[in-house]
Amino acid sequence: MELRIVHDLLDKVVLDDGRRNIGRVDGVVLELRRDAAPVVSAFEIGGRVLARRLGPRLARWAVALGRRWPALGNGVTRFAMRDVRTTGITVSVKCDGRPTPALAWENWLREHVISRIPGA
């Protein structure tokens, strides 16, 4: 199947089975094949992946930041293309996004910060 990476995949919002936003497609993983066109095997969500697209210096900072404060490093979430339901204006995947690293920060903040403020 032909896929227009920039038009229908890269930078689109990723929705999980519960229609939750789990992030945006920050990068794609290409599989190079001998004697055949490369295929998109997966896509990734994560600050480190995004930083890589913004430039080598930012990418180095992101890696250094993750090493210095591992808790800050969100990790990278990778979805195989076989788990992708649709692409286009948004990308939906066949899974529950909640336990993935992409929502680790969201979950941590909800539990440790936001829920403790009255009225949340």
Partner: peptide, 24 residues
């Protein structure tokens, strides 16, 4: 929106923790 988080002022603050933290 830029980073693809859930957002809505119509939801409870804890439903969109990063969004609520940002405005706070």
């Amino acid at each position: 929106q830029g980073l693809g988080w859930d957002w809505s002022e119509n939801a409870r603050p804890k439903q969109n923790a990063r969004f609520s933290l940002t405005y706070t």
